[in-house]
Computed example of a mutant assay.
Amino acid sequence: MATKVLNRGSAVLAVAAVATLTAAGMAYASTTITPANTPVTATSSDLRILTPGYTMRCTNVSGTGTTPAAPGNVNPSTGGIDINISSVSLSSCTLNGQPVTVAASGTWKLKVDHDGASPQGSLIIPAGGAVVTVPSSGCSITVGASTIGPLPYAKPSVTASNSGTVNFNSTGGGVCPPAGPGTAALTGKLTFSPGVDVTP
């Protein structure tokens, strides 16, 4: 299921942005997020999770969270900074055209850094972070621990395009992928309000 940030937060799936571009001679080894201690909302109107022969699309995605308070909004060394996403919602979703419900749970995270030549971000989904149910057939898909990214980040949007993988396990049947584990790619664009700056 693959993925922008938050309002008291909102930070979505979908979504995700910290790519470590390590250009020779351009490593920074520090990250600062601004504004600090501020509710943010991440939204997407077209988030897709793709696996061969199957496409899940959600046209209403949002997430809420708060940027770290000082001094937690500054990391003077490598490794970036995590923004916890306390609330994730995915609705208006379909799987190969069939309506599905998506129940998100656990703490999702957006890890951002400026360790390389430009800011990057990764969306970290916890084990069991989402369960997709197809009412018409009763099959279901559980999303396992996944990292989407790292992806280039430019205020206020993040574009995730076939980067990283979404791990899942399907019960099979109906329009669901065959039973068993699988992987998918996430595509989409996340927008954050207010915009979040990631600087060295």
Rank of each mutant, 00 (worst) to 15 (best):
V198H: 03
K111V: 09
P200Q: 13
V15D: 02
S62L: 08
R57K: 11
N60V: 03
F192L: 13
R8G: 15
L110K: 03
G53C: 10
T20F: 11
I33Q: 07
T147S: 12
L90C: 14
A185M: 09
P200R: 11
A154L: 08
A24H: 08
T64S: 12
G195Y: 04
T183F: 09
T20E: 15
S122I: 01
C58H: 07
A104H: 06
T41E: 09
T107K: 09
V5A: 13
N84M: 09
C58T: 01
G195L: 00
N84I: 14
S44M: 08
T199L: 11
G188H: 09
K111D: 12
F192E: 10
G144K: 14
L151A: 12
F192G: 14
A17I: 10
G80Q: 06
T43D: 09
P156N: 10
G188I: 02
G9C: 13
T159M: 00
V100D: 04
N60Q: 15
T38L: 07
P39K: 05
A103Q: 15
V102E: 07
S170T: 12
A130F: 04
G79F: 05
T183Q: 13
Q120I: 05
P126F: 00
F192V: 13
A24I: 01
A145G: 07
S77K: 04
P52S: 12
Q98T: 15
T3Q: 14
Y153A: 07
D115R: 02
L6H: 12
T67N: 00
K109P: 06
T183P: 06
G138H: 03
A145C: 01
K155D: 03
G121P: 01
A69V: 04
S45I: 07
P52D: 09
Q98H: 14
N75V: 10
A42M: 07
A70N: 11
V198N: 08
A23P: 11
D113C: 07
S118M: 14
A127R: 10
T191M: 00
K189G: 04
G172T: 02
A27G: 14
M26L: 15
V175Q: 06
P68Q: 05
A29I: 02
P126N: 02
P181T: 15
P39Q: 07
T199W: 06
P150N: 05
L50Q: 11
A184F: 01
V61M: 01
S118C: 12
C176R: 01
P150Y: 00
L50E: 13
S140R: 08
V40A: 13
A42F: 10
G180T: 03
